[in-house]
Amino acid sequence: MEIVMAIVVGILFMTATYLMLSKSLLRIIVGTGLLSHGAHLLILTMGRLKRGSAPLLGEKGPYTDPLPQALILTAIVISFGVTAFFLVLAYRAYKELGTDNIEKMRGNRGNE
């Protein structure tokens, strides 16, 4: 199961990288979203995948680690907020600058 997860995470990172290297702002945002999904799955995998045991220390038998899920929830909330903000910003930038092409947004020609 860990192998499958590793491959899934790898594919997510790969797609995210591909999307983030494109010029369109919207694709970049989708890319960052995928990147954080990959990171969340990675946490889940790194906390050992286990089924059927309670997240309680001191009970008899094996226990599941509840911490990765708490971490993922926090990370999801944060990435939700950041993505939402990014979308608003991209929309404003599109309205103001008239393009969603990163290349065309460049300004700031250095030492003038």
Binding site: L89, A90, L97, I102, G107
Partner: peptide
């Protein structure tokens, strides 16, 4: 404009 561009 410059703020929007840089903040992205």
């Amino acid at each position: 404009k410059i703020q929007l561009r840089e903040s992205i």
